[in-house]
Amino acid sequence: MIKAKLYQKENKICAFEISGHAGYAPHGEDIVCAAVTILSLNTVNAIEQFTDVPFQAEADEKKGGYLKVVFPLEGMEDERVQLLLQTLWLGLSGIETEYNKYLTLKIEEV
Rank of each mutant, 00 (worst) to 15 (best):
G75P: 03
F55W: 08
A34S: 14
N42P: 10
M76S: 12
Q8K: 15
S19Q: 15
L92S: 01
N100T: 05
G94C: 02
V36E: 13
K106P: 08
Y66N: 01
K12E: 14
G94H: 02
Q86M: 11
S19W: 03
E17K: 15
Y24E: 00
E58V: 11
Q86I: 01
L73S: 08
Q56E: 13
K5I: 10
V36H: 11
H27T: 15
L67N: 08
N11P: 11
V81F: 03
L73W: 02
I107C: 12
L83V: 04
D30A: 12
V44M: 06
G91C: 08
E108K: 02
Q82M: 02
T104A: 03
R80D: 08
P72Q: 01
A25S: 11
Y99D: 10
E96N: 06
Y66P: 05
H27I: 10
V32Y: 13
K101H: 09
V110S: 11
I18E: 06
V36C: 14
I38N: 07
L103I: 04
N100A: 00
E109G: 04
V110H: 11
K12D: 09
K5F: 13
N42H: 11
K106G: 04
D30I: 08
S40R: 02
D52N: 15
T43V: 00
T104D: 04
R80T: 14
G64K: 01
H21M: 03
T97S: 10
K5M: 06
S93Y: 00
E29Q: 15
Y102G: 02
A57I: 11
G75F: 06
C14E: 13
Q86R: 11
R80C: 06
I18K: 01
G91P: 07
L84E: 00
N45M: 07
E98R: 06
A59V: 10
W89S: 12
K3S: 07
G23F: 11
T37H: 08
H21L: 02
T43P: 10
P54G: 00
T97I: 03
K12G: 08
K106N: 13
K106E: 11
T37E: 13
G28A: 01
A57K: 09
S40W: 04
N11C: 10
Q8A: 08
A15S: 15
L67W: 13
K62G: 08
I47E: 00
E61I: 06
D78N: 12
G20A: 01
V53M: 00
G28D: 00
A22Y: 05
L41M: 15
S93R: 04
H21Q: 01
E17R: 12
G91M: 05
Y102E: 03
G75I: 05
Y102C: 06
E29F: 12
L39N: 15
L85M: 02
L39P: 14
I95D: 07
Q8H: 10
L83N: 04
M76A: 11
K9Y: 14
